[in-house]
Write a protein that binds this DNA or RNA. Structure first.
Lengths: 343, 343
DNA sequence: GGCAGGAACTAGAGCGCTCTAGTCACTTGC
DNA sequence: GCAAGTGACTAGAGCGCTCTAGTTCCTGCC
């Protein structure tokens, strides 16, 4: 053990390997491997001795070699957008669900400068056994190609391809609850500020149309094309102020709702007196004291659990009944919705 | 190429390797490696042919093997808390900064069920060449041990150990700006709702003390022990209401401020008429229309750039002048601070 | 014509593990 | 007393790459 740490390239003394531990303990590499993996095949006395040497040398198994040599990697790949709180919640759930099943998680971020294809490439290059895509927009065709290689579970949107699993909540119903709530409050002219091409946006749009029809409000339907960011909501709000205000509006997600509320606040539009607003996701934002956004909630913990279960079931050849699991969302009524005002 | 995808363990046809591509193109493994790595040593014609075969077979280099065989991994390990928007911003910046330098990023999340030590273990097991710890609380001693193995850069807090680099903003100054601002508005009884044991909390606490003294308000100092979560701020607010309200307060971070504002709102305390509130971080939350939190901002993009530069400089034996780089924070005045009211 | 020099390519040794197929010593059962 | 069994351990092949040290062949130059 040289203490050759001084200058130059530094730390050139490569990390200790199984070989080093084996030599130190006077046993074979294979035995050390057995001890480190905690599998049967070594006496308690030896285990203890080997562990002590490993500890002393600061030995840490090399994932690269381990993954390469093993017959399986037991790696679950997850793509997510770091700036999205919904994704973050799901990812944490995935960690928690994967560990007890003996799987490890590899995260790969999607960002402006890092398209989904890039993130997925990384997962494949690590030979993940399954991929869990959290709310990523992947072209149908590439999804099909991906599913050809490994089990794919999409979270938060319907499976865009018959070969992939999907774990999501029932978006049509979520929107339906929102419309029901607004109608019960006496609103009729209910607008949907949609999510454009964002994940599940089409479903929510559709849910809106169906719900309006069901309430005999087909004639009152009004869609504003928007998107998933605050700015999209803000622009929609400006248009509404200019072109005529509805009784209420439902946005694609909470972020969009925040943009809407911002513009309304600055323009002297009182929520909920002048107009009611409903968001979607029940993200942290929705709970903020000054916002108190009425919104549709989906259970991220359960979504994560189910996604992991799915992926593992596929890998372990268990029978998986349907391609989709759809959870029931629920409405959380807070302060941005109220009864229709006298006018 | 069998289309043996049907049932059973499925996809057992293992992914194509260099060998397969080499065979398909009628060249050696080494040559394919040269082509895939885009290094000199192959003719253009061959390059094209090899690439075509690789494409046709759906070949994807195996990171495990690549990392294992190469003399360097060029991997930068990053630990972060997924639920922290400040961390997410920094992480995205790290991706952006690492790529042009030819380094890859490995993310390792810290969560309730996944302590920092665990996250760091993962990074080590992948043989990352350097570790960038974003706002993680790692015991001084383990940090020292870690720095023994590889260059470590801590982001968002002072280096808790002489052997690690730190990239952060000048927290004492940030707090000072907040105090200056409040004093200029006429406030004297300024409380600090602190961050307890959270990263950089001690610095901010200290900055508060110094700033108060500098304004001749040493006698008005009042610290409330709190933490980094919304709930910590909320509890502090309850105590203040009970034990006596100050003119203004500065919280450890924006999350804490949100908790404070929540309790104040529910208790009929008007901000900023009755009391002014300043947060820290300028996270997304602070910009929300209904919140419009006055807060201290740090430049996450630059923090990330510098952290990567640091790590790479250490790896490539460049001279690094000081252990710490400290950026200047700045105050963003929004709606939660105002002049002292007549009473 | 002979040979240096370079471009294009290959052989083969690892990288640090896992895993199969052993070997060896020591019970155990009849 | 001996085959069979069992627990503890080892040898060695391989996982899919990279990288060093070649080899081969062409081109140009005196």
């Amino acid at each position: 053990m040289t203490t050759e740490r001084a200058s130059g390239r530094g730390r050139l003394d490569r990390p200790p390997t199984l070989e080093d531990v084996a030599a130190g303990a006077g046993v074979s590499r294979a035995l050390v491997s057995i001890v480190m993996r905690d599998v049967p095949g070594a006496s308690d006395a030896t285990r203890e001795r080997v562990r002590a040497v490993a500890e002393r040398l600061g030995y840490r198994p090399d994932s690269r070699a381990r993954l390469l040599a093993g017959r399986r990697t037991r790696l679950l790949g997850v793509t997510l957008a770091l700036n999205n709180p919904f994704h973050a919640d799901v990812a944490e759930g995935i960690y928690a669900a994967a560990e007890p099943l003996g799987y490890e998680v590899v995260l790969s971020a999607v960002a402006d400068a890092r398209p989904p294809a890039r993130a997925i490439d990384t997962l494949l290059s690590y030979r993940c056994e399954a991929a869990i895509l959290v709310g990523a927009l992947v072209p149908r065709k590439s999804l099909g190609a991906l599913a050809e290689r490994l089990p794919v579970v999409v979270v938060g949107q319907p499976a865009p391809h018959p070969a992939v699993d999907a774990v999501r909540s029932y978006d049509e119903r979520g929107i339906r609850f929102a419309v029901d709530h607004l109608v019960a409050l006496g609103h009729r002219r209910i607008v949907h500020v949609d999510g454009g091409r964002a994940p599940a946006a089409a479903l929510r749009r559709n849910g809106y149309r169906r719900a309006m029809k069901a309430h005999g409000l087909a004639g009152e339907q009004r869609l504003i094309a928007a998107g998933e960011r605050e700015e999209d909501g803000a622009e929609a709000a400006r248009r509404l102020i200019e072109e005529g205000m509805p009784d209420a509006l439902i946005t694609y997600n909470d972020r969009s709702a925040v943009g809407v509320l911002d513009v309304f606040a600055r323009s002297g539009v009182d929520v909920p007196r002048d107009v009611s607003v409903v968001g979607y996701d029940d993200s942290q934002v929705a709970r903020l004291p000054y916002l108190r956004l009425t919104t549709v909630s989906q259970d991220t913990g359960r979504l994560a659990d189910l996604a992991v279960q799915r992926a593992v079931a596929r890998l372990e050849d268990q029978v998986v009944a349907e391609r989709e699991v759809i959870l029931e969302p629920h409405l959380v009524v807070r302060g941005t919705t109220g009864p229709v005002a006298m006018r």
